[in-house]
Design a protein around this nucleic acid. Structure first.
Length: 613
RNA sequence: GCGGCAUUAGCUCAGCUGGAUAGAGCGUUUGACUACGAAUCAAAAGGUCGUAGGUUCGAAUCCUACAUGCCGCACCA
């Protein structure tokens, strides 16, 4: 429709200039917009305001000249000049309501667009280290990344979802060593005290709890195991309770057979088995949050040598070296990122010969651009300072403007308004898994996606758990379920039968063919049509701006308009309240279109659309 | 010190490339089912858009400075 209006405006402008009513000037943008106020019509053009200076003519005069020369069109009821020079277009009822039929015909293909123009875009997100469970921040990136991917796909991008596994750095060894120490502690406890695994596990847990409570270290006798653990690992340890759980798992499966093998061998074995289990935990947690990936990219592969005897990191360094971006100083290898606008140069290989994390990222991002046209990385806001150097690498390697970072601000967990203390020492971290289990995947995801990504989230666990209308996710789902219930009733099927048939078939039976949409003239009905008509542009803009959170606001508005409509307009005849059969069918068609749009938006958000609640 | 994000109603936040009288939810107050799902709807009250300048037909939106809060500024990952 906006294209059509634009076309008409251009024709009218040309005709007005031809007739001498307006001086000749070029108009680059007709400014076709939706007025905020419904009294101002369905569409408006601000072209008269924009071109006043170019035309040396008052905006209202320009608007009048254009309106006078507009070609007649059956879809347009009337045109009015308003305010400083807006040209407002009022559509016919038939044109306004056509969207109901369109939604029903297109189903989940409704509101597709091609703003992505088929561009192959990789979105990398979550990428939690495989040495522990996902935290709530990771959950936010999961919701944000997955929803963004869905929206961009609907808007014509080709999307690849990628998870980067940091399985190479020294944290992997720390992880293995932490497991090893806990394992030996468990074995020793069982043997020396003659207790079983569960009891030994409990001893270590209590010891760890005592350590957490003893913040000033006044009672070392209460936590000898935690102190020994910290001492053995030189302060470089993973102290979380899950490490004890994992060590206990090894004891359970393998008994004490690792006690006698050389330490390095044991650490390596635990590191690898623990890594696989942690990664599996992350994978299933993401899946339970309705979030999946196409590619799980292992950092280690960047260090595997190919037939030429080199690896991806070395090849990336070589490419940078040839372009003169590398140099050595004080025994380290540096990337001259200041040439590309960074504050300081960055180390790739440390003086002790180890690679930095950044070294991997150089090779990794080079690798990405060999696979896709555009890259979006979703990072936590605390990684803000890292953007510039990666951007410099992408520029240096010849891919300027094709690398993009979406920063997500952090999540504050609350319980009934009071902040939940997140302390590593105290071990009071709430994991994303625990959050999902406690409040449910739908409410969790909806709440995490509802805010703009650069807005901090206060996630009140008790409020989000509440199954009430305080909670927008249930408000939206309720509207969907309510419509499904109406359609089932008319089609004469039970909820179970509807599940089996699918709601599209139920709706077909309920509405029948060719409902007369021109009968829908109530203000609440027209408001629904107008809202449905906004969805295509909304999804396009969410994709363009990488802002899927706007979908939730739309869903709430649409659900609200539906509830208002349902309150004002009788849909089904009932005892003592007869209703024209054709009007009933038309209203059912409108309900069905809303049902489809709600389900579509919820699916883009990654939340279910239940048929009953 | 440098950089990023934030600052809009009592609270939590929308406000898309500058557009017409700045919106929603919650909370408060008051109403609406012998009709289809009341997990619903309707109405009222509530704002010098952090401050001060600037840009123009027009600014919550763009520019500059300042203030306040959060987060970063490693040869850690």
């Amino acid at each position: 429709m906006p294209e059509k209006i634009e076309n008409l405006v251009r024709q009218a402008l040309a005709a007005a200039q031809e007739a001498g009513a307006l001086p000749p000037f070029e108009l680059d943008d007709c400014g076709i917009e939706r007025p905020a106020d419904t009294d101002h019509g369905e569409w408006t053009s601000t072209c008269a305001l924009r071109s006043a200076k170019l035309a040396h003519t008052a905006p209202r005069a320009i608007a009048q000249a254009i309106a006078d020369h507009l070609p007649a069109d059956p879809a347009i009821d009337r045109v009015e000049i308003a305010g400083p020079g807006f040209i407002n277009f009022y559509l016919s009822v038939a044109a306004k309501n056509a969207v109901f039929a369109q939604v029903r015909a297109e189903g989940f293909d409704f509101a597709r667009s091609n703003v992505g123009a088929g561009q192959l875009c990789q979105v990398e997100f979550v990428s939690a280290n495989p040495v522990g469970p996902m935290h709530v921040g990771h959950g936010r990136w999961a919701a944000l990344g997955d929803s963004l991917c869905r929206v961009m796909e609907h808007a014509g991008y080709r999307i690849e979802r990628e998870f980067y596994i940091n399985d190479h750095g020294s944290q992997m060894d720390v992880f293995g060593r932490s497991l090893s120490v806990r394992y030996l502690q468990l074995i020793a406890l069982m043997r020396e005290r003659g207790i079983d695994l569960a009891a030994a596990h409990a001893v270590l847990e209590e010891d760890r709890g005592n350590y957490a409570d003893d913040e000033d270290g006044a009672h070392p006798e209460l936590h000898p195991f935690q102190d020994a653990f910290n001492e053995t690992l030189g302060g470089n340890a993973y102290g979380g309770g899950y490490i004890i759980d994992e060590a206990a798992h090894i004891v359970e499966v393998d008994g004490d057979r690792w006690e006698s093998v050389p330490e390095e061998e044991r650490v390596a074995a635990f590191r690898e088995s623990g890594y696989r289990r942690m990664l599996e935990d992350i994978r299933t947690t993401c899946a339970d949050a309705n979030c999946t990936f196409d590619v799980w990219f292992s950092e280690r592969t960047l260090y595997e040598r190919d037939e030429t005897g080199t690896n991806a990191v070395e090849r990336a360094f070589e490419a940078l070296r040839e372009m003169g971006y590398l140099y050595e100083r004080e025994g380290a290898l540096w990337f001259r990122s200041t040439d590309l606008g960074d504050d300081k140069d960055r180390v790739l290989v440390k003086a002790n010969g180890e690679y930095t994390y950044f070294a991997s990222d150089v090779a990794y991002h080079w690798n990405k651009f060999q696979r896709v046209e555009h890259v979006i990385d979703i990072w936590g806001a605390d990684h803000h300072g890292y953007i510039k150097r990666v951007e410099c690498v992408c520029d240096a390697l010849g891919y300027p403007g094709r690398f993009e970072v979406l920063l997500g601000q952090l999540v504050n967990l609350l319980r009934s308004g009071k902040p939940v203390r997140m302390s590593k020492r105290r071990g009071t971290m709430i994991t994303f898994r625990e959050l999902l289990d406690e409040v449910g995947a739908d409410a969790t995801r909806y709440t995490l996606i509802r805010r703009s990504s650069n807005q901090m989230i206060d996630f009140d666990i008790d409020a989000v758990k509440e199954r009430s209308n305080d909670n927008p996710v249930y408000y939206v789902q309720y509207a969907h379920a309510r419509i499904c219930s109406i359609l089932r009733r008319v089609a004469g099927v039970t909820a179970d039968q509807a599940e089996a048939l699918g709601m599209d078939e139920v709706a077909r039976r309920a509405v029948g063919a060719d409902a007369d949409l021109a009968l829908l003239t109530d203000s609440t009905e027209l408001a629904l049509a107008r809202k449905l008509g906004e969805l295509t542009e909304l999804i396009a803009s969410c994709a363009r701006d990488r802002a899927p959170f706007r979908l939730t606001h739309y869903a709430e508005e649409l659900a609200g308009l539906f509830h208002a409509f349902y309150h004002d307009c009788q849909v089904l005849p009932s005892e003592g309240r007869p209703l024209d059969a054709e009007l009933s069918r038309a209203r059912l068609a409108a309900c069905d279109a809303v049902r489809i749009a709600l389900a579509l938006v919820l699916s883009l958000v990654g939340v279910s659309a239940p048929q009953q609640m």
